[in-house]
Amino acid sequence: MFEKIEQLIKTLANKEVKSTDLLDFLLAHQAGENHLVFVCTHNSRRSQFGQVWAHVLAHHFQLNIKAYSAGTEVTECNPRTLQALHAQGFEILSEEGENPVHKVYFSKEADPILLWSKTIEDDSLPQANFVALMTCDHADENCPFIPGAQARIPYRYEDPKAFDGTDLEAKMYQERSLEIATDLHALFSQLSNK
């Protein structure tokens, strides 16, 4: 793992688990591989942070968890999301185009995490036996049913989009990324101790 990311993980304070429903579900299903799909309306900010940090922390804690992200609409992975991840130590290679695929590297040895905006019906996502984590209130309120999900759990965060174009933009994107990383660190550390 890249040194800067390893150091950042060491700073993540253990706190209470954000969702005991999610912890209970994962504890009950630890025998197999678990698939987490982070869902937000545009699949451009919070759900992408969730996918990246769940992937990295599952690797860190050696958990059998696969992470994905999706939305209810296709847009693109927001450049500010990528800038925040880059500032936190990730290396990113991006394709060109309207909705490009971004290869997010956290280690020289591991395959990159692939980020792009997609809907919950995308063929790259598990079609059954996954947990849908609703990272924004709009998707949570407007998607009462996610086909194929074993569980649908609210896992909401404030949208850093509110700070786009302001002096606080970079700070708030990094804060949201760290908030999601901290919550997942608390969750995965609990799982690794069971």
Rank of each mutant, 00 (worst) to 15 (best):
D122P: 09
H138D: 14
L125T: 03
L115F: 00
F130L: 03
A128S: 11
A128T: 13
V131M: 00
N142D: 08
Q127P: 07
L115P: 02
E141H: 09
D140Y: 08
D122K: 08
K118C: 03
L133S: 04
N142K: 11
V131R: 03
T135R: 09
A139F: 05
D111M: 13
L114G: 11
M134P: 11
H138I: 12
A139I: 06
D122W: 06
T119W: 10
L133R: 01
F130R: 03
W116I: 04
D122G: 01
A139K: 04
I113G: 00
D111C: 08
P126S: 10
I113T: 01
S117F: 10
L115V: 06
V131F: 01
E141Q: 15
L133Q: 02
A132V: 00
P126M: 07
C136G: 10
N142V: 11
L114D: 12
K118Y: 08
S124R: 13
M134N: 10
L114H: 15
N129E: 15
L133N: 02
L125V: 10
S124A: 15
N142E: 12
K118P: 08
E141N: 13
C136S: 05
N129H: 15
A128H: 12
D122F: 05
L133C: 05
V131G: 09
L114N: 12
W116C: 03
C143K: 02
P112Q: 08
T119Y: 11
T135C: 13
C136V: 02
S124D: 15
C136Y: 00
L125A: 07
W116P: 01
D140C: 12
V131Q: 03
W116V: 08
T119S: 14
C136H: 05
T135D: 07
P112Y: 01
S117P: 01
D137I: 04
D123V: 12
